[in-house]
């Protein structure tokens, strides 16, 4: 395989789980909710996806199970924060704690077993085109799903009534409520969508990225997804750019190391985070842009007055 092509393929696989989890969280935050439990939902998606695929032999069922696990975790969060109006930051952190523990328990008997790999689709003819063929037409289905999700989310959020409602709820829940929208229900739906995406992202890790189950295998990717949402100033397009930028810097760090230049590996490992901060500073400098897109009600609980 050609070196450059290999690097690009690696960047795509490294970026996809981040993008999948982040796009869900973006919708959640657009509706005015901050769910810091992405890591917990993701790791549950990973273990349930793996366990199901291993038991049934079907990666498709595994993906489905991963999504359902994410939704299940998200439901706990939604019930806590929307129905019982508990604090979102603390609930999200508790969700991560629960997810990491529970996934370990579920996965105890699946450690050390080779998984069922999600086979990349390979579109005939097109995937044989030199260089770009493999990159554009030979990915696994979830890579395409992540791109489709970005496009669909952009469309729904900004071109449809549903999107208008979600943004209205996130920007000012009181006026959305007085306009007759059910703020709580909209947020429930968005939180569950976020859970589904995080679960899918987890399933991607345990089915496609490294087909196996290991405790804590998400290794902090949920947190990076959270950061990317803020970095993207809540715009799906920018989120995709951000995820791929992060993936690129991440992989290039490894690439440069293999060249043996003697740059401290800690410095290269910290580059993706530094770059994210710098990029954020540049974007944030443009004040009108950020202010327009920031959901004003983020993190605030809503209880309808009656």
């Amino acid at each position: 395989m050609d070196g450059t092509q290999a690097i690009i393929l690696t960047i795509i696989t490294a970026s996809t789980p981040l993008l999948l989890a982040a796009i869900g969280e973006l919708v959640v935050e657009r509706s005015g909710v901050l769910n810091l439990g992405v890591e917990g939902m993701m790791v549950m998606g990973a273990v349930c996806g793996f366990a199901t695929a291993y038991t049934t032999g079907s990666p498709t069922l595994g993906i489905f199970a991963g999504i359902m696990a994410g939704i299940g975790m998200a439901f706990i969060f939604a019930f806590m924060t929307q129905t019982l109006v508990s604090n979102q930051v603390a609930t999200g952190l508790a969700l991560t704690l629960l997810g990491l523990g529970l996934s370990g328990l579920i996965g105890e008997s699946f450690v050390g077993l080779p998984g069922v790999k999600l086979v990349p689709v390979s579109i005939p003819l097109l995937s044989d085109i030199p260089f770009i063929g493999r990159i554009l037409f030979g990915q696994d289905i979830l890579v395409y799903a992540s791109i489709a999700l970005v496009i669909a989310t952009t469309y729904v959020l900004f071109k449809t009534r549903v999107g208008l409602i979600i943004r209205a709820v996130g920007d000012n829940h009181h006026s959305a409520h007085s306009l007759g929208y059910n703020v709580i229900m909209v947020r429930y739906a968005c939180i569950l969508f976020g859970g589904a995406c995080a679960g899918l992202s987890g399933a991607y890790l345990s089915l496609a990225y490294t087909p196996q189950w290991i405790e804590n295998m998400t290794a902090g990717r949920g947190w990076i997804a959270l950061a990317l949402v803020v970095f993207a100033t809540w715009l799906p397009k920018r989120l995709a750019i951000g995820a791929y930028l992060f993936g690129t810097v991440w992989i290039m760090g490894l690439y440069v190391q293999a060249q043996g230049l003697g740059i401290p590996s800690q410095f290269l490992s910290s580059l993706p985070y530094l770059v994210t901060i710098i990029a954020l500073v540049i974007i944030s400098g443009n004040k009108t842009l950020t202010r327009v897109n920031t959901p004003a009600c983020i993190g605030q609980s809503f209880v309808p007055d009656r």
Binding site: I7, L254, Y255, Q257, A258, S265
Partner: peptide, 23 residues
Amino acid sequence: KIVWVNSWFDPGKEADAAKVLIG
């Protein structure tokens, strides 16, 4: 060719490193 992943345990990053090395 040597890559340090600064972790004992990050399957994703280890996989990335392997791909980069093969590339």
